[in-house]
Simulated assay, not measured.
Amino acid sequence: MSDKLISPEQCRMARAGVGLTAGRLAERAQVSKVTLSDFEKGKRAPHPRTIAAIRVALESVGVEFIEDNGGGAGVRLKRKGSDAIISLEDLNAENDN
């Protein structure tokens, strides 16, 4: 299980990005819907293992979490059908998909 925590904003963005309802994410993470809802609204900070379970559930459906690097933390979706990462120097019209 991931030991890195996510913010409520990252959770909301990730869930929206993959089209999961709060109920479906709560089910996948094996947490209560109230716990998830309260976390996303910033009403409470669940136990770290609960947040980790939410993160793992989102990662399992293609979400990548971006750590705060001075520009703010965020999320992105994995490319479907390809996990290949191309460096900026190698980017060209042939591999631009």
Results as ranks from 00 to 15, higher is better:
residue 36 L to W: 08
residue 20 L to E: 08
residue 31 V to L: 11
residue 12 R to N: 01
residue 18 V to H: 01
residue 15 R to T: 02
residue 40 E to K: 03
residue 8 P to I: 02
residue 9 E to S: 13
residue 41 K to A: 14
residue 15 R to F: 02
residue 20 L to F: 12
residue 13 M to D: 03
residue 7 S to V: 05
residue 32 S to I: 05
residue 10 Q to A: 06
residue 8 P to D: 02
residue 31 V to G: 00
residue 9 E to Q: 14
residue 39 F to A: 06
residue 28 R to L: 15
residue 40 E to H: 08
residue 33 K to W: 11
residue 23 G to N: 14
residue 31 V to A: 07
residue 28 R to P: 08
residue 20 L to H: 11
residue 29 A to I: 06
residue 32 S to L: 04
residue 37 S to V: 04
residue 19 G to C: 09
residue 27 E to N: 02
residue 35 T to C: 12
residue 19 G to V: 06
residue 32 S to N: 11
residue 31 V to Y: 00
residue 27 E to T: 02
residue 15 R to P: 02
residue 40 E to C: 03
residue 36 L to E: 08
residue 38 D to G: 10
residue 9 E to R: 13
residue 26 A to H: 05
residue 22 A to V: 14
residue 28 R to E: 13
residue 41 K to S: 13
residue 41 K to V: 11
residue 31 V to K: 07
residue 37 S to Q: 09
residue 34 V to D: 05
residue 7 S to W: 00
residue 18 V to G: 04
residue 37 S to R: 07
residue 15 R to L: 01
residue 23 G to S: 13
residue 14 A to M: 01
residue 11 C to I: 04
residue 31 V to T: 08
residue 23 G to A: 15
residue 32 S to A: 08
residue 21 T to N: 00
residue 11 C to V: 00
residue 8 P to Y: 01
residue 26 A to T: 07
residue 37 S to N: 09
residue 10 Q to N: 10
residue 35 T to V: 11
residue 26 A to R: 06
residue 11 C to A: 08
residue 11 C to P: 05
residue 35 T to P: 08
residue 9 E to L: 13
residue 29 A to R: 10
residue 30 Q to P: 08
residue 7 S to Q: 10
residue 10 Q to H: 07
residue 26 A to P: 02
residue 30 Q to H: 12
residue 19 G to R: 05
residue 37 S to Y: 10
residue 19 G to N: 11
residue 30 Q to C: 14
residue 36 L to M: 06
residue 35 T to W: 12
residue 23 G to Y: 12
residue 26 A to L: 04
residue 30 Q to R: 15
residue 27 E to W: 02
residue 8 P to V: 00
residue 36 L to C: 04
residue 21 T to S: 15
residue 24 R to K: 15
residue 18 V to D: 01
residue 14 A to G: 00
residue 13 M to A: 06
residue 29 A to V: 08
residue 41 K to L: 15
residue 7 S to F: 00
residue 7 S to A: 10
residue 7 S to T: 14
residue 30 Q to F: 14
residue 11 C to S: 05
residue 19 G to Q: 04
residue 17 G to T: 05
residue 16 A to P: 05
residue 39 F to T: 03
residue 15 R to H: 05
residue 29 A to F: 14
residue 20 L to N: 10
residue 25 L to F: 10
residue 17 G to A: 02
residue 9 E to F: 13
residue 34 V to S: 07
residue 25 L to K: 09
residue 22 A to R: 15
residue 37 S to L: 09
residue 35 T to Y: 11
residue 13 M to N: 07
residue 39 F to W: 11
residue 41 K to R: 15
residue 36 L to R: 06
residue 41 K to N: 15
residue 26 A to Q: 11
residue 15 R to V: 03
residue 33 K to F: 13
residue 19 G to D: 13
residue 35 T to S: 13
residue 14 A to T: 03
residue 34 V to G: 04
residue 31 V to Q: 00
residue 30 Q to V: 12
residue 27 E to A: 02
residue 20 L to M: 09
residue 27 E to S: 00
residue 11 C to T: 03
residue 33 K to Y: 12
residue 11 C to D: 00
